[in-house]
């Protein structure tokens, strides 16, 4: 992995980093409170309340929680199945917490994978995600087309013996753009997504469509273009026989000529990165 580059982050990026680490803090706090019998709905509510208490008023999307084989999206056919259910957590079960709060106008979108007690399969999946994080930033720096990078990630997953589960997300995206969101007095949501954020995404989609790019990073033709500068929430999601694992964090893409500066992860001080560094 790349050595932690000490960067002079612009004030704006610092805002994004702040909300991203807040969100991961929330995930760790909620994960520590999970115990057998807690349902997905309760876990989602715990995340929502934790963040509301700390000043989050708007969402890119409301918090999700997936337990057991739902971490691998087993049998998912319609998007409504992403919403938290009454499934109860049991000992040894894997879980994923996924939330996208907006704080002071900055958006974060994170995914946190863990398990209640030891789960060697998920540990293995999490360890193998490291190669994906490296692959993605390397190929973005090479300015490869997003569709090609997607296919390379796919190939790596197949080599590792896993199934691509981000394919189950809307449009099969491995990543999507996030941006600043205007702070309004009320922040309604539509199917779990904040309307302000959806508006931003839609306007990106319209502008991008004219210029030949898309804010959605998918396996389809509309993603057959080099990375667009901006902030991308990248979420590779591995599945292996009823166990899933993902991380999600912001990749900063700039138009700098220096490869190091042209793309970098917003923050390297995140639970999954620390986990790899500790060699677990």
């Amino acid at each position: 992995m790349t050595p932690a580059v000490v960067r002079e982050l612009s004030a704006e990026l610092r805002g994004f980093r702040e909300v991203q680490s807040l969100a991961y803090e929330c995930a760790e706090a909620v994960a520590a409170q999970l115990k057998p019998g807690v349902t997905e709905r309760e876990a989602a509510r715990m995340q929502r309340e934790w963040l509301r208490e700390r000043g989050v008023r708007d969402w890119f999307h409301l918090p999700f929680a997936w337990f057991g084989d739902r971490t691998a999206f087993a049998g998912f056919r319609i998007p409504l199945q992403f919403f938290p259910t009454n499934r109860k957590l049991e000992a040894g079960m894997p879980f994923i917490l996924d939330m996208a709060p907006v704080y002071k106008g900055c958006t974060a979108d994170i995914g946190y994978s863990g398990s209640l007690g030891p789960n060697p399969v998920q540990d293995k999946l999490l360890a193998d995600l490291e190669a994906h994080r490296e692959l993605i930033v390397r190929e973005v720096r090479e300015r490869r087309s997003l569709r090609e990078i997607y296919e390379d990630v796919d190939r790596l997953m197949v080599r590792q013996g896993y199934a691509n589960r981000h394919r189950a997300y809307p449009f099969g995206v491995i990543a999507h753009k996030v941006d600043r969101v205007k702070e309004r007095r009320i922040s309604p949501t539509l199917f779990g997504f904040g309307t302000q954020s959806l508006k931003g995404l839609a306007s990106d989609a319209v502008h991008g469509h004219r210029d030949g790019w898309s804010p959605l990073w998918s396996p389809y033709k509309f993603s057959d273009h080099p990375p667009q500068p901006g902030l991308w929430a990248v979420e590779p999601h591995l599945g292996f026989r009823g166990t899933g694992a993902k991380f999600e964090e912001i990749l900063v893409v700039t138009d700098s000529k220096d490869p190091e500066q042209s793309a970098f992860w917003l923050d390297d001080d995140l639970p999954h990165v620390r986990r790899w560094a500790e060699g677990i």
């Binding site: 060697p120 399969v121 293995k124 080599r159 590792q160 013996g161 292996f240 026989r241």
Partner: peptide, 13 residues
């Protein structure tokens, strides 16, 4: 390499 990978994962499950 891929055979070894299969064997390794098989033991995990």
């Amino acid at each position: 390499e891929s055979a070894a990978r299969t064997a390794e994962m098989a033991q995990l499950i």
